[in-house]
Amino acid sequence: MKASIRNDPHFRPLVILAACIVLLSAVDWGQWRFLSAATPFSTLQTFANIGLVALGLGLTMMIREFDLSVVGMFGLAGCVAVMTGAAHPWFGIACAIAIGLAAGIIQGLIMVRFALGSVGVTLGGLLTFVGLAHVLTENRSVPYDNFRVALLVNEPFAGLLSVRSGVSLAIFAVVALTFGFTRLGRDIIAIGSDRRAAMIAGVNVDAFIVGIFAFSGVCAAATGALLSYSLASASPAGLSDVLVPAAAAAILGGVSLGGGSGRPLGIATGALVLAVLRSGLNAVEAPPFVNDIAMGAILLTVAIGDGPYLMRRLRQLAARERTDR
């Protein structure tokens, strides 16, 4: 039983989460900056910034693809929402999500129709979306004048949540339930595990690819739009540093790039780890680079730990030591 827990990739994010909380508490000991009532709220706010993007990206990683375009869509959707949603915020959100959906579907169809890898296609998508954002905003930062909405989306309710984090958590819950209790989850794992096999077994692989990229586009768009509302402005260049945390969250959450593992709750935990880290470091007033370095170090460690040749190399080193002796 113990061994099975240790080998379960979904157990890892919980360990890292616990380690982060313990470490931050220790740093903060006695000062009650990290261990304060404000921390959970700010943690969830940060979670709302990256969680859904990580979910979309993570799902593409689960089927052994990689959606680079989330970065571009994140920024583009923010600009679109701010520009169209001044009078009717719902309309702005709808526009942003429609664009995310359309972009995801188009990219997915291109991959399926022309049998292309996702990195190339979504790189094209990324550059195109960033370009569109620049063109639409004429290279300027666009203010969002509807301050009532800006305040509303960040307004705390139920002590912990805001509209943004509530939406994120709700979507996570829906996706996690769908993944766990319907055929879809196992089909996705099967596609990631062996795509050709899944196809021959009768899984409609093409539909899944298009669907997952569409979902990823929607996630990035919704997050970008809500974040831009909450910041009361959008700029084409200002939102581009979402790829690192999103990929990190997915990887931390147990999504393996070799495919065949990962689940939505794991990604949520991964995103939570990064959110705790960031808001915790803010709370204890650590300089900003600590967060970058911590995130990079964690990501690198996990990447090396997941390296398929790690055990083989270590054994080689051990063997060399034996012969030297």
Binding site: F66, V119, L243, V244, A247, A248, I251, L257, M295, G296, A297, L299, L300, V302, A303, I304, D306, G307, P308, Y309, L310, R313
Partner: peptide, 11 residues
């Protein structure tokens, strides 16, 4: 260790 190149470079 054949770590994933995309993740390593993002890190």
């Amino acid at each position: 260790v054949r770590a994933n190149p995309i993740i390593v470079s993002i890190a």
